[in-house]
Simulated assay, not measured.
Amino acid sequence: MGIAERKEREKEQRRQQIIDAAEIVFFKHGFETASMDMVAEQAELSKATLYMYFKSKEELYFHIFKRGEGLLMQMIEREVQKSHTFQEKLLGSLKALVRFQKKHKHYFDVIEFFHSMHRQKTSVKKLMDSHLKEEQERIKLWSDLFEKGKADGVVRPDLNPLRAMVVIWLQFTGFLQRYQLLADSLKQDFGLSQEELLEEAYDLILNGILKK
């Protein structure tokens, strides 16, 4: 390995160490309260060194967002690859999202918060624009699933794959977000567990998609 390659590898290792430190800070304090000073202290670096690698806390948060999205897509892709029917692939994808939210709650919250930010801040929008290709690949994974379901005669022929995918994703992520806030009252006042509500949601989704 040459000197240039070694330096580049060391630089990338330092970048990942900074992101690791930023995760600790952001997960503990949230985006609004966290600061570059906190990240520098956690990473045991000077603030000047930190800014050599990342220009802003938005950029750092973006890289945590990308980590979370990458992990989520790995979980979904594994479900799609090991399943056979359209129903198995779709439900497997949704159940992977549920597992992700339970096992990696901080990443789930970062993803949802970052998506809510990117229309409000120009700096964040630029970061998301650079991420467009990856977003399109994720959308294509689901669109292809619906197209295959239509070709196999399983999915309603009038269904628009892109619109259906977006609606289901918004419904499901919205459900998971709201349930976090209402879990105790739903259980105490109505005796409804998340598992029961999820089974109902899966049934409603499939009934709205599958060809009769």
Rank of each mutant, 00 (worst) to 15 (best):
H106S: 15
K105S: 13
K133A: 14
Q101R: 07
H131A: 04
G153W: 09
L141D: 02
K140D: 05
F108Q: 00
S93R: 01
Q120H: 14
Y107Q: 10
M128R: 06
V154N: 05
K125A: 14
L97I: 09
P157R: 08
F100S: 00
S123F: 11
E134F: 13
T122N: 12
L94E: 01
K150R: 12
K105W: 12
L145T: 02
Q136G: 01
H118Q: 15
F108G: 00
K105E: 15
S123N: 13
E147Q: 14
K148Q: 15
V124S: 06
A96C: 02
K140I: 01
P161V: 01
R119C: 10
H106Y: 12
V155F: 10
D158K: 06
L132Q: 15
Q136T: 07
H131D: 12
R156A: 13
K126T: 09
R119Y: 15
H118V: 04
F146M: 03
V155Q: 05
H131G: 01
H115P: 00
G149K: 04
K121M: 11
K148A: 14
E135W: 07
S116M: 11
E137Q: 11
K103W: 09
V110T: 07
L97H: 02
K148P: 06
L91A: 01
N160P: 02
D109N: 13
P157F: 07
K121I: 13
S116K: 11
A151C: 02
I139K: 06
F113D: 14
L94Q: 00
F146D: 01
E137H: 05
K103P: 00
M117A: 08
K148Y: 10
K103G: 10
K102V: 02
M117Y: 15
E112A: 11
P161N: 03
K125V: 02
A151D: 08
L97M: 12
K95A: 07
L91G: 01
P161H: 02
D152M: 04
G149R: 01
F146Q: 01
R156S: 12
K103Y: 11
E134N: 10
D129T: 12
K105G: 12
I111Y: 04
S143W: 08
L159Q: 03
V154K: 05
K102G: 02
V110A: 04
S130P: 05
P157H: 13
E147Y: 13
E134L: 09
K126H: 15
L159N: 03
E112V: 09
